[in-house]
Amino acid sequence: MTLRLPDAAGRLRTYRPRTEPLTVTTGAPLASRTVYSAAHVVADPYADVSPDSPAAIDWDATLAFRRHLWSHGLGVAEAMDTAQRGMGLDWAGAAELVRRSAAEARAVGGRIACGVGTDQLTGPASLAEIRTAYEEQLAVAEEAGGRAILMASRALAATAAGPEDYLEVYGHLLRQAAEPVILHWLGPMFDPALEGYWGSSDLDAATATFLEVIAAHPDKVDGIKVSLLDARREVDLRRRLPHGVRCYTGDDFNYPELIAGDERGFSHALLGIFDPLGPLAAQAVRVLDTGDVKGFRELLDPTVELSRHLFQAPTRFYKTGVVFLAWLAGHQEHFTMVGGLQSARSLPHFARAYELADGLGLFPNPELAEARMKSLLALYGVTP
């Protein structure tokens, strides 16, 4: 069987799908790296909503996907930007997601960390209001039993007069956190509203402020998640961290080399691309657990082309490709997203994502993926 797929120039070309998926098995818990997959949410396709409505979520399918990730030994990073936080999922929906997912994690023994932000604020806010918003969300995550991830705040980016305001807000939060948290530095390629985070658009100056926050409270920082898509900067930053503070790579362009590390250290992982790569990523880390860096890279390096495709500019719309692949892989019965975000990428983009994922053997049922790809092509008017 073949498909006619459109390329970037709009020309149709013939593609022959593979017939067998990659063989991936579950195994021992991951040992040498702590690995989280940020997870998407599954929208309720039958809800009568508009793009401005609160998110309507299919809870059964959403939680089933998390069980899929846990079954392969991955942790789940919940209510992050991969779950369309700030792009369709509001705080009320995120809070419910945290509670439900954390309860499911307890039931199956899964690792979970939960995004904590300030997205209940909808307009200009004072520093005191920003602290209060963070505190409300921190309480929800802690009461649910998840490790807190202090996400970058659009409100703080808009309000802070300089580095001192970041030091004050984060210092206040870290002093009262019940357990060590993960600090998240999300670059403006993921969210343009975060330009100048940590008080400066100069990344060296911003890094100095970030490190100052950590140095003042090293016992309250489990680790940092760095999403700047700059491998050199991440390596430099992790070498400057206090002893015992982990670096979780959020670099969806360069993750194999950063996780593998070098003679002076390595990164753990908290990645959106591990949503579609979950089983393969877990298998690669198990190979790395044996000390086989070459085998790890041989498994994970070929996935980078797919990841760079999904995360191409405008990077913040990578969630569309992630959910598209979940549909093709059979993790949900439809390609509908919260806020109608399924429209955020083009047909040629979807076609290339399908081709790359199929080439990697990511679809447990290649025939199902092919049939669903054909149904999408037909919707766009592509005939066999």
Score class of each variant (00 low, 15 high):
1 M>L: 10
2 T>M: 06
4 R>H: 14
13 R>F: 10
15 Y>M: 06
15 Y>W: 15
16 R>W: 11
26 T>A: 14
28 A>G: 06
31 A>Q: 13
34 T>R: 15
40 H>F: 12
41 V>K: 03
47 A>T: 05
47 A>G: 08
51 P>I: 14
55 A>V: 05
56 A>Q: 02
63 L>D: 05
69 L>A: 13
70 W>F: 05
73 G>K: 02
79 A>I: 00
79 A>F: 00
90 D>T: 09
91 W>H: 09
93 G>Q: 02
94 A>C: 03
101 S>P: 01
102 A>V: 05
106 R>T: 10
110 G>P: 00
110 G>Q: 01
115 G>N: 01
115 G>S: 05
118 T>K: 07
124 P>C: 02
131 R>Y: 04
132 T>D: 14
135 E>K: 08
136 E>F: 05
137 Q>H: 15
140 V>N: 04
142 E>W: 01
143 E>V: 07
147 R>V: 11
158 A>H: 09
162 G>I: 12
171 G>R: 03
171 G>I: 03
179 E>V: 06
180 P>L: 10
193 A>E: 15
203 L>T: 11
205 A>I: 04
205 A>T: 08
207 T>A: 15
217 H>R: 11
220 K>L: 06
222 D>M: 06
228 L>H: 09
232 R>G: 15
235 V>D: 06
242 P>N: 10
246 R>F: 10
249 T>A: 03
252 D>F: 07
254 N>D: 14
261 G>P: 04
276 P>K: 13
276 P>V: 11
280 L>M: 11
282 A>G: 10
290 T>V: 02
290 T>K: 04
295 G>H: 06
306 L>C: 06
314 P>L: 10
315 T>W: 01
321 G>H: 06
324 F>G: 01
335 F>T: 04
337 M>G: 02
341 L>Q: 11
343 S>Q: 13
343 S>R: 14
346 S>R: 03
378 A>N: 07
379 L>T: 09
382 V>D: 12
384 P>K: 03
